[in-house]
């Protein structure tokens, strides 16, 4: 039997999203597909699968990404969903932890990749905020004030997310001065 759940996670909370998907999998609901904020699950044995997420450096249909996904497949990792450059994968539980990135260097690089994406979205919204504000100063129309406020609010939200990601990356990076990996 399949089950669909709607839920929203911010990009900077992808680790919480991953943890939630793993809780579901532990209960016997393994994710099989993803649409925007819409997760579809299938019933499995409790704890049969473990889930992981990653933001790829290239688009999903890029040869690099295709090669990477084939490599994952070879190691028993199955692609179950994607959204833009985000991938959701699952693997049959083999007793140990399941992560895609096990070393600090790759983890920091991954966080920085997400940070750049969030920063880009924030920047666009900031631009939209100022642009619409400028329009309003010319024409004094209500819709421009509204659009400007939305732009500034989203830019603020993205800034918050970028700071969260930055802190996470910094914490891991600092450990790299102590540990070899």
């Amino acid at each position: 039997m399949r089950k669909t759940i709607k839920k929203l996670f911010w990009a900077w909370d992808f680790d919480k999203e991953e943890a939630w998907l793993n809780e579901m999998a532990a209960k016997g609901l393994a994710m099989v597909s993803y649409g925007f904020c819409r997760y579809e699950f299938e019933e499995t044995e409790p704890g049969e699968y473990r889930i992981a997420m990653e933001l790829l450096p290239h688009a999903l249909n890029h040869p690099e990404s295709e090669q990477y996904l084939r490599f994952l497949e070879e190691t028993g990792i199955e692609l179950v969903g994607s959204w833009m450059r985000w991938i959701y994968v699952r693997k049959k539980t083999d007793g140990g932890e399941f992560e895609l990135l096990s070393d600090r260097k790759s983890k920091v690089e991954h966080l920085v990749r997400i940070l750049i994406l969030v920063g880009l979205v924030g920047g666009l919204n900031l631009y939209s905020g100022f642009y619409n504000f400028f329009i309003w100063t010319q024409f004094h129309n209500g819709i421009s004030v509204f659009a400007s406020c939305i732009g500034f609010a989203l830019a603020l939200l993205a800034t918050f997310g970028a700071v969260r990601l930055g802190i996470k990356a910094y914490r891991i990076a600092r450990e790299r001065g102590i540990y070899e990996d």
Binding site: Y68, T75, S102
Partner: peptide, 8 residues
């Protein structure tokens, strides 16, 4: 335990 992404 080498993670697949790290290994790649």
């Amino acid at each position: 335990r080498l993670a697949a992404g790290t290994l790649y």
